[in-house]
């Protein structure tokens, strides 16, 4: 089976927020909830880099490990989903997540969608695939429709790539080769230089 992954190519990301509004549009995500956001480092300084971040669908997901009601599950495609019928909105997953992915509706504790909300890799939730009930709680299920997350599909510069990890790696590797030299991804210097 595929192992679904996101990769954001910081050499290409221009912080246009297309991924953010594509997500809002696709799932009618309410104001105040951001399943995906773009983070800019060194804003306005030489070396400025931007990167689009959402749930990274970790293989050994910390949210899943800490959840007191065990509402998380991993699909056969390696996508980490959760069950809003079980979620108690405690925020422990938010505490555990290294990417700040879990979101909580702003107006009330059990607001618009209720409970915790996060990126589903456009794969819906435990309700029947493509049902109205699924759409209402989790948004659209593109994976069941045979397409990929809309944020990546619509990325203005093809910086954000989503899909099977092996294919994502192939696309990125080819790009790096064309650019020549070392992988020009953000963080390389920090990780491997000196």
């Amino acid at each position: 089976m595929a192992k679904m992954k996101f990769l954001c190519d910081a050499e290409r990301c221009i912080e246009c927020n297309g991924c953010v509004t594509a997500c809002k549009n696709e799932h009618e995500v309410p104001w105040g909830v951001n399943r995906r956001r773009v983070v800019t480092l060194g804003d306005g300084e030489p070396g400025e880099k931007s990167i689009s971040v959402a749930c990274m669908h970790c293989t050994d997901a910390p949210c899943q490990a800490v959840c007191p009601v065990d509402c998380f599950y991993t699909t056969s495609d390696g996508i980490v989903l959760h069950d809003k019928n079980l979620c108690i909105g405690c925020g422990y997953c938010f505490y555990a997540c290294p990417f700040g992915a879990p979101q909580y509706p702003q107006d009330t504790a059990f607001g618009v969608r209720g409970k915790m909300d996060k990126c589903t890799f456009c794969a819906g939730g435990p309700e029947d695939d493509l049902s109205d009930a699924e759409y209402e709680k989790y948004g659209r299920n593109r994976i069941a429709e045979g397409t990929l997350p809309l944020c990546a599909e619509m990325c203005s510069t093809k910086a954000l790539i989503a899909g099977d990890g092996d294919e994502v790696a192939d696309i990125y590797r080819e790009r790096v080769l064309r650019r020549g030299g070392r992988p020009q991804t953000w963080g390389w210097d920090t990780a491997y230089k000196a």
């Binding site: 297309g18 991924c19 509004t21 619509m154 990325c155 203005s156």
Partner: peptide
């Protein structure tokens, strides 16, 4: 080629 910025991705 399918791409949109924040504005284009929200025209709906």
């Amino acid at each position: 080629l399918g791409a949109h910025c924040a504005k284009g991705a929200s025209v709906r």
